[in-house]
Every structure is written in C-alpha cells, then in structure tokens.
Nucleic acid binder design. Sequence first.
DNA 1: AAACTTTATGATATCGCTAACAGTGTTTGT
DNA 2: ACAAACACTGTTAGCGATATCATAAAGTTT
Lengths: 345, 345
Amino acid sequence: MTTSKRIRIQDIAERVGVSTMTVSRVLNQDSKVSDAKRALVMKAVKELNYRPNVAARRLASNKSFFIGLLYFDDLDTSYLSKFLLRGLKICRSTGHHLVVEEIDDDINKALASVKELIEVTQVDGLILLPPICNNEKLLTTLQQANVSFVRIAPDTQLNLSPYICMDDYQASFEMTEMLIKQGHSKIGHIIGNPNQGVSRLRYQGFLDALRSNKINVPPEYIEQGLFTVDSGVEAAKKMLSLDDRPTAIFAANDAMAAGVLSAANMARISVPDELSIAGFDDGHLAVSVSPNLTTVRQPIQQMAELAIDIIASGKFSDLAKANAREFRNVLDFEIVERESTNTLK
Amino acid sequence: MTTSKRIRIQDIAERVGVSTMTVSRVLNQDSKVSDAKRALVMKAVKELNYRPNVAARRLASNKSFFIGLLYFDDLDTSYLSKFLLRGLKICRSTGHHLVVEEIDDDINKALASVKELIEVTQVDGLILLPPICNNEKLLTTLQQANVSFVRIAPDTQLNLSPYICMDDYQASFEMTEMLIKQGHSKIGHIIGNPNQGVSRLRYQGFLDALRSNKINVPPEYIEQGLFTVDSGVEAAKKMLSLDDRPTAIFAANDAMAAGVLSAANMARISVPDELSIAGFDDGHLAVSVSPNLTTVRQPIQQMAELAIDIIASGKFSDLAKANAREFRNVLDFEIVERESTNTLK
DNA sequence: AAACTTTATGATATCGCTAACAGTGTTTGT
DNA sequence: ACAAACACTGTTAGCGATATCATAAAGTTT
C-alpha cells in the first residue's frame, strides 16, 4: 500500500510560505485574506489534493459536524432511503456526518431520545422529515434547546424554521388537468391521511382543477384514505362498485394507487383501458406494480441536498435569519406519465 | 439550554484519583489495570454519564472510526435501507461512522472511487453488499490495499474474508416443502438473476425439496427471471398459459413474485384461491401488494449488526485470523406466511 | 501630522484523547 | 540472593486543526 502521508494544513502552509492560520482562513471562507495569498493557497490545496482532517477540525472548532436526521417509522422506506443516500453523499463532501434517529410513537419517549441525541452528539443541526416536522411538542423542545433545524414538507408554523417543500397543490392540480386533457371527466380522488397536511393540499388541487374546467364531482367519487395500500384497496372497491363508476382515479400517493390497481384487478377492470390510475410520490412502488404508475415525482434528492447545505453552511444561526425568504424553498416537481393512465376511448 | 459541560476523561480521572491514562485504559479494554481501579473508574463513568469525544479519540489514535459500505445500484432499496438504518444505529453506539458509497457499473470507475474512498477516509474496514461482494477485481484491489472487509451473502471465494449470510438453499427447501404440505404438487419456480449465486442456491433448494418428496417437475414449470418485476410478469405469463398450469409459483424474490401476482391478475386468476404465490426477501414490497406475499425473511438487520461489530471490534486484523471459523456466519431465516399462499382445495 | 481604525497576517495555546516511554513495586528463575 | 520478567501506573508529547490575541501595515479622521 502506498502509505502516502496525509497532507496537512501545515504542508500547504510551508509550500506556500504562509502560516497555518492563513491556510485555515482560506479553507473556512474567512474573508480576511488577500486575494493573492488566497489564490496561492487554493492552488496548493488542489495540487496536493488536500483533505481536511475532520477529527482535528471538530476537536479544535468545537463544532460537531454532525447533522441529525429525524424520521418517523410511518415514512415510506423508499422516500427515506432516497433522502438518506443522497444526504450521506452530500455530507461526505462537506465533512459532516448524518446521525439518523427514528422517532418513537410515544411523544415523550421521542422527546427524551431527541434530547439525548442533542446532548450526546452535539449536532450542528437537525433535519425533520414529514410528518414529525409538524409535531408541536417536538418543535417547541428544539427551540428551547436552541438547536437549528430544517423541516421537509411541513404544513404548520411555516415561519418557525427554514423549510423545503414542493408545491403539492400545484402538482395535484396539474395531474388532474392531465387526466382531464386525456378526456376523463369522471375522476375519483382518494384523500391521504388527514393528519398530514399534504393530503389537504393535494385534495384541494384536485378540486380546483375540476372546478376550473367546470367539471362536477359527485361526493361518491371522493374517498378518505390513509396513505396505505389497504386503504387504497378499500376506497377503490367502493368507487368501482358504483353504477356510474369513474374512468380515472387519482390517489394522493403511490401506495393507495397501488391499492386501486389491486382492487381493479380483483374486479376484473382493466388498467388503463377501462380505468386510469394516477399516484403521487414516484417511489420504488410506482415501478414495481404493473402497469407502472403515472405519478408525481417529488424532488427528494434535491431536498436532501438543500437541507444539508443549509445546515452545513451554517448559513443560519440565529432565528431572525432563519425566517429570511431564502430559507423558504419550494422546489419543482415533475409529472411522470407511465402506463397506468391513458386517453379515454 | 442546560449547558452542562461535557464530561472529559480528565474529570473522571480527578474524581477517582488516577491518571487520565488509567481511565483511557479502562475505556479501551486494555487489560493492564487492577480490578479495584477498573471498578472505580467504571463506576465514575456511569455516574457522570461519560461519553468519549470521538473526534479526540480519532485524532489521537490515528484510527478513522469509519466503516465503508459499498453497494451496487441494482440492489433492492428496501434491502439497502434496512441494512443502512440498522447499521447507522449500531455505529452510533460504537462511535463509528458509515461512509456509504454506490459502486459504478463500470468496474474501472468503481475501483478508482473505492481507492479514493480508502485513501481519503482511511476506513477501518469495508462492508460489501451483494452482488459486488463477488467481484473479483474489487476483491483483489482490496486485498492489495490491505483493507479489512466483510462480505454479505457472497457466493465465491468464501475463505477470502469474513462473511455473513443466510442459508438460502435451506430456506428455499423449506418454503417449497411448505407449499407441498399445503397440498401443492404442481409448483413452478422462477429462477433469479443468473449472475447472483443465490439464484442457484434457491433453485437447488426448490428442486431438492421436490425430489425428496418424489414430485416431478416438468421443464415448463421452470422459468429464468432477473429479479425484476417485469421478468416475473413475463415468466408467469408463460407458466400460467400452459394447459396444465401450476397451482403454486415460488419466485426467487419478492419483486418477481409481485410480477407473478400482476400476471395472475391480468389473466383473471385469483390469488391465492387458484394460485399460490411465494416470494423471497420480505422487503417492503411484500406487504405493498395485495394479497400480501408469503415470503422468506432475510435477517438483514442482524447481518448489519454483525458486520459492523466485526469491523468495529477490530477482531480481525490479519488475514490469517480472518479465515477463522468465527468469521463464517450463517444466520437464521424465517418463513413468513401471509395471504398469497393457501391450502390447495 | 497625530491619533485612531481597519485589514491582513502570524504566534501560541488549546481541544480531548492515546502512544510511547518511564518508572514503580512484585513476582519469578536459577 | 540477584537479575530478569512482569504487572500496574504515571509523565510527556503529540495528533491536525482553530480561537484568541498580538502585531504590522495601510487607510481615515480631525
């Protein structure tokens, strides 16, 4: 093995002929370095392929370089793992580390473990995935503990912290319009779990798209689901047994859409010929059922990147800043047309 | 915030009345400490709720406390995320960190990035998930680089390194016997991706179970798949259109089993009444389709724990030891009966 | 032009831990 | 009985970075 001694900040300093502090300043974006020296240092850094020693940096700076990621068991595995994998990658490049913690059902246990996490690892910041990013007790605790946090797709108290989300309402609106353009006018909707705000947004987008196209929705075309496959099956069974059943069903997530598909199969209704189905999320599931689901792609990876960047860059430290416009990030979505929807014949 | 100063090794030393080295020795399982002092130190450690400062430890000891996890894109997300989540948890308790790296299709790029990973992060060891744990070039490179690694479910060169796996052959055998006990004798099998060794093992277990029960398998009941949903659909279509079609199909993983389910639905064959379906893996998918899949549960979490423990404990450093029996771990599986299989009527 | 800022740099002291060596006693070997 | 081996404990010196303070040079004010 080529035991090529690891390059230290000192090696660079010697090569360039400055002190280690100057190098450190350059590396930490500290502005008080002359352009000439900064350039020299940067050049040497590249030439020697210098990588900071995270441990030393952490020890000296008394920052932890840890980022906590809190999620709730409930969350779709594919959502989580996408977020996680991208997050881990980004972290590596910034020298941070992800500390992932599952949040307990029991809020008191959860609070205790989060407090423990904060004390023990001294995280620089936390990322809260939905739906726990809306838990009031948790949010209060974090504020009291004076920890920075970024929330993903929150639906309450939007100026409590920086957040990242996509426009669920608009996505739902556009998906519905797409179905309408395909000739559907009898469109059903399965609402998501009512204790997640996105369910309401998606429902509203659906309704408004129909209204703006002057299409009426009979109440039987709306069912309440729970974001689970089973709830999708149940809802679809009811809708599909109607005398005048819908020609398209838009479920508020992929799991329920998969449920609709199962129900359709059981009822011997062919998809997409007799029934179009649309989902929301574009997780693994969307391409694991056949026909593959038409769905809305959430920009999860991008969310992960942004979330980590916000914390890693230390851009916000005091809460005043945290409310600044730049920390309200609404990302673009994408409608992915696959095989489960089709023009109405 | 209670800014309770973090406890240092020195605080303990002072309280007990020994030097910091003695405390350090106790904490690092170094044997040369008298039982009396060891007990005192341990007591203080508990009372003060001491947690070592990982950064300092890393800096001083020149170990990285990093563990690399290499995976190939191909891998089922749910497999990966289960492994990852448990791995991250275990790591936290040992003070290690996971550095996760996706391996490129192009083996040369992959080797380059692995080398980079090793140099940059100075990992204490690597964990190789299937199928890349069988890649010869990669293995050779790692050996040359003199890095410790543990392989998960490898199927070649078994005494090259410690490994962890389950008995795929036996699991497949038992699953098949279960179907036979349910009264099935016309059982089809969809073989997994031929370039993963487990496919062969599962196929063999299937064949041997039938043979030991004196049941004949017509060649039309065996199809080659690729571990993908689509390949499952294709294989099932063929099998289900036979004049004398099987009453049960055992697919070598859940994705293909989900494919079989889709095909059955398309062909209006009811599951499990007219067709029983069994899968393998027990990932997220198994409970996302309906009916839920009967399948084999892989002890993924346990694999993760063990893998990390082996590396974290530094139990093996030279390759001689690495071949010892204790590093060949075959874990138990579990057959999970759900709704997709039923007694033949 | 004296007095005061501001800006760019360096010297030095840590951060919390462990490696390496240097003692103590205490046991063992011959 | 005296050297050699062993078991236990402490001392000292870093690991590689940053914080903090000090200093020199340049720019501003009055």
